[in-house]
Design a protein around this nucleic acid. Structure first.
Lengths: 221, 221
DNA sequence: TCGTAGAACGTACAGTGTACGTACCGCCCA
DNA sequence: TGGGCGGTACGTACACTGTACGTTCTACGA
């Protein structure tokens, strides 16, 4: 029996590999949102069938873990010549930037098990904290405070759904359904956002925390 | 034609209503996790069929919004006789407690649209901030900082999967797969957690933020 | 007694993750 | 020059999800 092969798709497809799948997953999530990241969609975007992905990736959870770790790998390594707390600040800013580039990553940051890149990042942050001259206990708390601040702010920013769309439109729409008599302070607060004469909370509060830590340490001695 | 009715289930079931559905959803999510909260499971737990729920609730997203708002309603109202920032602190602690009681709520806190209870809570928090004597701008940032701190800490705590299970076991398991040479500071940090001679970061950092705000305000004048 | 509104129900559909069995292709060893 | 043999791709199938739609039942007011 003769089997005739028909070239149904002339587009040459890149060979499958964990790295290729993770990369495709990241771009798909970046462009269409994490909800569009189904194994079927991902396979289609790569030009393969669904189950072929499972030859390179254990399951979807594994894929998500790898994707999150790839984002973590984008975080700048600390400058070894900088004073520890300055380096901490830089890491926080860089982490915030990486999470802003990949909005889907922040909610997964906590759920997924930390991969090597995130381990590296956490270990570096801890090392800097412990080397900063703060007391052991304050360094411990400072680690959590900084981590929490960075992740919290990105989540807050994204949770509002302020990624792609115009922030102003969103805010105006929200405020339209708001009774200024029952929620006067919310209305006022949103106005402050719209008028834009309040800078970013992110760096201000970050410095608040870091400065507060050293002050607390000084007072304790 | 005669139709014989058979009492297949003698258990009398409570009449369906939005409140009853929300309450059942909350207990189901509390006990079995939010992943177990499917419309089918929820209907079964109430003794009804799936589609009957849709007579009282628009869709699952609507249900989740109502559930989150029910948790928000558990937050203590601010004591009107307390100084503003003391009341802010109390609200933060109470919010943290409510979120700890319902671990599933924290991730939904941001995704779901705010209902009346959360609106009330946000407006109260803003009112206290603006009444605290801080500059308008610092009050604005302080609102975000406190909100962020509370939510971030609960998410951090839950993300680790430290709800139901024993924290120590989890930590020891995690550390077992950790190379002390490549991640020395992580190992040390987890040890500090296990030894337990570091208090809760939550209130310490909360005070750090609140004290930092008033100090910043004093310096600016 | 009848009409009607609202609640409950059953079926059906598209979409999800993935277990399982099969087919193919290239490489190493006889 | 075979001949397996391991890895990759594929197709089918299953259980489960949210929910649209049409039908049945039940209670109450006229």
């Amino acid at each position: 029996m003769y089997v005739v092969k028909v070239a149904t798709d002339t587009a040459p497809r890149a060979p499958l590999s964990p790295a290729a799948i993770v990369a495709a997953g990241i771009t798909l999530a970046d462009e269409q949102g994490v909800d569009a990241l189904s194994m079927r969609n991902l396979a289609r975007s790569l030009g393969y069938e669904v189950m072929s992905l499972y030859n390179h990736v254990r399951n979807k959870d594994d894929l998500l873990t790898l994707m999150v770790d790839a984002v973590a790998a984008e975080i700048d390594l600390p400058d070894p010549s900088a004073p520890p707390l300055v380096a901490v600040r830089a890491m926080a800013v860089s982490t915030n930037a990486a999470l802003a580039r990949h909005p889907w990553a922040a909610p997964l940051w906590l759920r997924q098990a930390p991969g090597p890149a995130r381990m590296r990042q956490m270990d570096d942050l801890l090392r800097l904290m412990y080397a900063s001259g703060l007391s052991r206990e304050l360094a411990h708390h400072g680690f959590h405070a900084v981590n929490n601040h960075v992740l919290g702010y990105t989540l807050q920013r994204l949770g509002m759904g302020l990624e792609g769309t115009d922030l102003e439109d969103k805010a105006r729409d929200f405020m339209a359904g708001l009774d200024a008599d029952t929620y006067p302070f919310m209305v006022a607060h949103i106005h402050e956002h719209l008028d834009g004469h309040t800078g970013s909370s992110f760096e201000l509060v970050l410095d608040l925390i870091l400065d507060g830590l050293v002050r607390l340490d000084r007072e304790a001695r």
